[in-house]
Design a protein around this nucleic acid. Sequence first.
DNA 1: TTAAACTTTCAAAAATAATTGAAAGTTTGT
DNA 2: ACAAACTTTCAATTATTTTTGAAAGTTTAA
Lengths: 167, 167
Amino acid sequence: MEFKEAKNKFVQTWGALGSQWGINKTMAQIHALLMVSNEPVSMEDIMEELQISRGNASMNLRGLMDWGIVYKEFKAGERKEFFTAEKDLDELAVKISRERSKREIKPTLKILKEVSTIEAKDSAEEKHFVDQTTKLYDFVLKADNMLDKITEFNDNWLGKLFIKMMK
Amino acid sequence: MEFKEAKNKFVQTWGALGSQWGINKTMAQIHALLMVSNEPVSMEDIMEELQISRGNASMNLRGLMDWGIVYKEFKAGERKEFFTAEKDLDELAVKISRERSKREIKPTLKILKEVSTIEAKDSAEEKHFVDQTTKLYDFVLKADNMLDKITEFNDNWLGKLFIKMMK
DNA sequence: TTAAACTTTCAAAAATAATTGAAAGTTTGT
DNA sequence: ACAAACTTTCAATTATTTTTGAAAGTTTAA
């Protein structure tokens, strides 16, 4: 396999994976492209490589920057903007974890708290509901706290998590 | 908040969350409904509660069974089928992890292996590509192995993971 | 201050995904 | 073997999401 083919395959694969995780295909593809580029890429180049419109590129780049995993760069003497991706994978994982926690897990916990604390009356049905949503709340909370812990460290985080938890 | 309202809120929330994770809304809603039901639910009841068509219910139930997190049940004397969800949350997490690994991570690893082992010539661009995709491969592999480990156990898995890894 | 070079926005269009419902399929009891 | 009771399938429809492209906005240099 030659370079161009490999790069394309990687970008396509990463894009397809993105869809399965609720991230739109183009956004994931742009991210993939930037991840494997050794130098900052202009919007023009992104449009060209992925065959997408200017508006599309602009919006998805903004999305990636909101996630904190793509940065704007400026080149001396150049007026246009360039973009780079976070390339450190531990850092990438940390950013994604933090953001998903903030956007999805925290709001879900809030709702779970609400619904699990209703007055449970006497019916088995209602008791089961309260019981199950309470368990769910505890489970999600535990999982989220673990993510928090993980993101406190940067490399070899599992090892360090160990130590932290043994205290 | 009264029971019916709480139940509805939970089902809606779980459904919305599903979309963000690449699972379709109805599938997540059915799952939510079954999770908090203390007894098996018929297709008829699911259709009624979620206001969806028979075809929709049928297809999404099948999807949930493919994930291994919803089961068919038969009631004595009843011709029709009933459904229940896996309610043990550790077990649920294990099932989802295994399935995502099989469906998404393993195929991705295969591609990452392929693209990271191209002949890297001498350009900095190609070298960076190989370097970055190799790191990605290692990272994803490590993450997947961790999931594997986690799924070997059933409850208190984090504690047991500890023990296993200390050996 | 003007205009060139660039980016963002957003309504409309296109693409994709989910849903319906009725016909076809299956199973069970008589 | 029949038919009642149920489930599955899938082409057509509907809903949702993504993409486009041109107008509006912004920044910089002269």
